[in-house]
Design a protein around this nucleic acid. Structure first.
Length: 346
DNA sequence: TGCCAGGCGGGGT
DNA sequence: ACCCCGCATGGC
């Protein structure tokens, strides 16, 4: 992949599919290297799976993972493998910073390097739906993201296919995000701040193909901008705090807490997963949530996430067919757009 | 074409 | 507490 910056903005040439990120409104910000260190790669940790899952080309290119870490100054981390047993984390920022230790810790938290999933793996290995995917996905770790970004992801998923939802999110980033050039020639996009969205018109958001979801995105932005919600307090929030925002219901609230605070005990049961549970475990759709909770206990959210990876987030009809045919493992196919290959296409 | 898709809120019972 | 409908948009 080739990244170049010119007077028109950041041009990302991705697999021959070139497009221009217009640097209108914000221009290009340049970040310089401030610190770098290596950490040991745990035995059971797959950097590639962690970095690939539900990601964009401006965050992952197959070898290096870019993580925006808003913490005072605009800062991003670049993470890549160093040999077989180490990861190198490099921090880039606009200015010199004196709290790099906190930032390195934050990166480690985001990539889930110290997560202990032994108890989860015990259930996974013998689950009728997911056991087949265990050997493919056991090294997976969920990349944590901020609450605001998690809510954006959730809203884009509402009543839409996986592909449609991620197209919407990509448009939000491309149209409204902050284009950033990293020392060394890479380029990326930092998601738009709540303030940026709160000041945008609903019409501007509609251009991101959000449809009626534009209202929900705007309400979320206003909740952060006005201080009703804040990133730092995510660990204090429950579903009910998030569902106070109009447009955020139970599903989106749970998903957002899973993605932003690893609240794996929450079952994000949408119509898709409810039908799958109903078919696989032979219960009614109404009983699906209870069934999932009884099987996964405090791991409901992580299991739901992994279910989407194992079935390539196929629309319901195809997902059910895949289950019937016993193909509940990710397709690593050159041309197929899946949660694990999205970064090659968008 | 027309109908559906990883939700949601509002208005009905 | 439930049930049901409309809602933008893209994809088939």
């Amino acid at each position: 992949m080739v990244y170049t910056v010119n007077k028109f903005g950041v041009n990302i040439n991705n697999c021959g599919n070139s497009w221009l990120i217009k640097a209108r409104l914000v221009g290009v910000v340049k970040l310089s290297k401030v610190a770098s260190r290596t950490i040991d790669l745990p035995e059971d940790f797959s950097f590639e799976l962690m970095a690939s899952a539900y990601n964009f080309s401006w965050y992952f290119d197959g070898s290096e993972l870019i993580i925006p870490i808003g913490h005072g100054e605009l800062t991003i981390a670049v993470v890549g493998k160093e040999g077989k047993e180490e990861l190198r984390i490099t921090l880039f920022s606009q200015k010199k910073i004196n709290y790099v230790d906190a930032l390195f810790e934050k990166v480690e938290d985001v990539i889930g390097i110290n997560e202990d999933l032994k108890d989860f793996h015990k259930i996974w290995r013998r689950d009728p739906l997911l056991s087949q995917s265990y050997d493919f996905l056991r090294g997976f770790r969920l990349r944590k993201t901020g609450l605001w970004n998690a809510l954006l992801i959730g809203v884009c998923q509402q009543n839409a296919s996986f592909r449609q939802g991620w197209n919407m999110l990509a448009l939000i980033y491309k149209n409204l995000g902050l284009k950033v050039e990293i020392e060394g020639g890479k380029a990326t996009i930092v998601p738009p701040s709540p303030e940026r969205i709160a000041r945008s018109s609903v019409g501007e958001l509609r251009k991101c193909k959000l449809g009626y979801r534009a209202e929900a995105v705007k309400k979320c932005a206003e909740a952060f901008y006005s201080g009703i919600l804040s990133e730092e307090d995510v660990d204090k929030y429950g579903e009910e705090d998030l569902t106070r925002v109009k447009g955020i219901g139970k599903y989106t609230a749970r998903l957002a807490l899973i993605l932003s605070d690893r609240r794996y005990e929450l079952p994000p049961i949408d119509r898709w997963l409810a039908r799958i549970i109903s078919e696989v475990y032979n219960v009614s759709v109404g009983e699906a949530e209870g069934e999932w909770v009884s099987r996964w206990g405090k791991w409901c959210g992580l299991a739901a996430f992994i279910t989407t990876l194992a079935l390539d987030a196929e629309p319901l009809t195809q997902a059910l067919r895949r289950i019937r045919e016993g193909r509940v493992t990710p397709t690593f196919n050159e041309s197929k757009v899946t949660p694990l290959t999205l970064w090659k296409f968008i």
